[in-house]
Amino acid sequence: MSTAPEKGAAEPGEHGPLFWVFLLVGWAVIIFAIHGMVADRANPPGVWKLLVGLNIVNDALVAPVLVVVAVLVRRLVPGWLVAPLDVGLIASAVVTLYAYPLVGSWGKSAAAGYSRLPFDYAHSLLMVLGAIWFACALLALWSWSRKRPRPA
């Protein structure tokens, strides 16, 4: 979660009328949503627990881990390889995150039949990761070839 003003943003007290209109309308919609959640018995405590929990997981766990990975890549890897490696890591991490529940197959059920989650998703994920890293290897090769000194 970001809590600070961005560079170039209006200072407090300098907000234009548009800011106030959007602020009021936005908060009216937020209050409407909270009311709807309560009125529809959508288990608001359960919703908010997950909502705030995901916020904390991102800020306190995911982002610091990414910082460490980014620093390690820059310190340990030759310069020409950093960008292709970054691309591979970004794509692999996101695809793996998306595919995690599929690979776990927690939604599978004998009663639901074979058409639900019909693939071997661990195999599928490996195939997709293989394709990603193949593309990154080509990028790295190109990056390396551009780095080599050209003959005079």
Binding site: W27, M37, R116
Partner: peptide, 28 residues
């Protein structure tokens, strides 16, 4: 993915109202 155990609520209702929540915050 039919993995319902992480959701202690009825998905359509919670997802619907959370969407309104995000839209309000997005307007701000």
């Amino acid at each position: 993915d039919y993995w319902y155990s992480p959701m202690p609520f009825f998905f359509p209702t919670a997802h619907f109202w959370a969407a309104w929540l995000v839209v309000g915050a997005l307007i701000v």
